[in-house]
Each structure stands twice: as structure tokens, then as C-alpha cells.
């Protein structure tokens, strides 16, 4: 069997401090992976720092948000005919050491693998609100799609070719992580979760205040319900 080609998609918005260490730790895992950084209209030196590492980069003219950035990477992967695409955050919270395991778990019967913080007990300590939100989303997805997804907000994901082609055509933009799960499940795609450790953000502070968190929770819940009512 020939080895499958792998494209690692890193959406980055103002991540000049962490992007190069993320890229070099991926390189340490394997040289076989092609890395593409999606610079989502950053105001800082994300573009220059990435170019210094010699990594492929796609520069969006303005900030599209995480959904639009990831979709750009998927479009790239589709155009270059990659077998597998891996989405990794640029802020260093996804440990690249899990990538080989995540790819291995993408067997012939699976369309997407999610790196999940909550399948096994891990050291990841999420805030109370975040855990509450994730429990609510998890149950909403169970209710609308009949499948338990523990970590629906994780952006650590592996896609096969079929999933890439599907998401290039319809990728949700506002809350892409949970919405895309509903979209994929409703269209008969098979999703699997693999336990991963996640680091706390390496640099920068999360900008989410408790009030914002509640607001996000409500809008994501509504988005999941709306997504599950859409016609295809």
C-alpha cells in the first residue's frame, strides 16, 4: 500500500509568537507531512514568521474567522489532491505528537477523527462554563443526530478525501466545530473520537469573558438545532 499524502492545515490569526514552534514541532514528528498555514488576515508578523520557516502559506486579504480559514485550507487540500487533511490550532494547544495516532484512527470506515479531551481523564482543566457548554452541545448532538460526540468544540481534526470534498462545498462559518459535526452526521459521515492531551494556550489569553461564554453557549445551541433542521 502506498503511503497516503497528508496536508496539515494551520489556521492562524495573529499568532506570530507561537506559529513557528507549532510548525517545528510538527516537522519533528514527521517530514512527510506538508504544512500549509492559513494566515487569516493577521495584523502582526504571522506572515513573515511563517515565510521564514519556509512553510507554505495562504494569505487571506482580510479576517474571515476560523471557519472561513479552515475551509480555505480544505480547498487547498482538495485542489492538491491530498488523501488526508489535518487541522491543528496555531496557538500551541494541540500537541502534534497525537497526529500519527489520529491519522491511524482514520480507517477505511471513518470519515473524520476528532482529537477529544474528554474521552479519557486527561490533565486538561477546562473552566466550569466551558465544561457545561460542552456537555450541553454533546447532548444536543446526541438528541438531533443520535450519536454521542464528547468534544464537539475541539478543532483538532483529521479528514479523509470524501469529507474534504464535502466540507469544501458546505462549511459552516459562525460556529464551525459543532455545526460541522451535525452537518456531517446528518449526511451519513462516520465520526470517531480519539483521546488527546491539550495544552493550555501557550501564548495570549483567551478573550472569552463569562458573559460572552453564556452568549456563545446559547448561540451555538441554537446553531446546532437549526443545523439539524436544515434541508439537504
Amino acid at each position: 500500500m502506498t503511503k497516503k499524502s497528508v496536508c496539515i492545515i494551520i489556521p492562524a490569526y495573529n499568532e506570530e509568537k507561537s506559529i513557528s514552534s507549532v510548525i517545528s514541532s510538527i516537522r519533528k514528528i514527521s517530514r512527510r507531512y506538508d504544512v500549509i498555514v492559513i494566515n487569516d488576515g493577521s495584523d502582526d508578523k504571522t506572515k513573515e514568521v511563517t515565510e521564514q520557516t519556509g512553510t507554505g502559506i495562504l494569505n487571506l486579504s482580510f479576517n474571515l474567522g476560523i471557519g472561513g480559514a479552515v475551509q480555505t485550507g480544505l480547498k487547498y487540500a482538495l485542489a492538491k489532491d491530498y488523501d488526508i487533511a489535518v487541522q491543528v490550532d496555531a496557538d500551541g494547544q494541540h500537541d502534534p505528537r497525537h497526529i500519527p495516532q489520529l491519522i491511524a484512527d482514520l480507517d477505511s470506515g471513518t470519515d473524520m477523527v476528532i482529537g477529544s479531551r474528554f474521552i479519557n481523564k486527561t490533565n486538561y482543566k477546562a473552566s466550569f462554563l466551558r465544561r457545561l457548554g460542552i456537555t450541553i452541545f454533546s447532548n444536543l448532538i446526541l438528541f438531533t443526530c443520535g450519536k454521542k460526540i464528547f468534544d464537539s468544540t475541539s478543532g483538532y481534526r483529521v479528514f479523509n478525501k470524501k469529507t474534504i470534498a464535502f466540507l469544501v462545498r458546505n462549511y459552516p462559518i459562525d460556529f464551525p466545530e459543532p455545526e460541522s459535526i451535525v452537518k456531517l452526521l446528518r449526511n451519513g459521515f462516520v465520526i470517531k473520537e480519539t483521546p488527546v492531551e491539550m495544552n493550555r494556550r501557550a501564548t495570549g489569553e483567551s478573550s472569552v469573558t463569562p458573559l460572552k461564554a453564556l452568549y456563545f453557549m446559547a448561540s451555538i445551541s441554537v446553531a446546532i438545532l437549526i443545523e439539524s433542521m436544515k434541508k439537504y
Binding site: 507554505g56 495562504l58 494569505n59 487571506l60 486579504s61 480555505t72 480547498k75
Partner: peptide, 13 residues
């Protein structure tokens, strides 16, 4: 606009 921005980024590269 999103589609155009994405296409533009791919073409630039």
C-alpha cells in the same frame, strides 16, 4: 465575498 477571498488567497499562492 468569502468565496472570493478564499479563491484570491489560493491564486496568490
Amino acid at each position: 465575498i468569502k468565496e472570493l477571498a478564499q479563491e484570491n488567497a489560493l491564486l496568490k499562492s
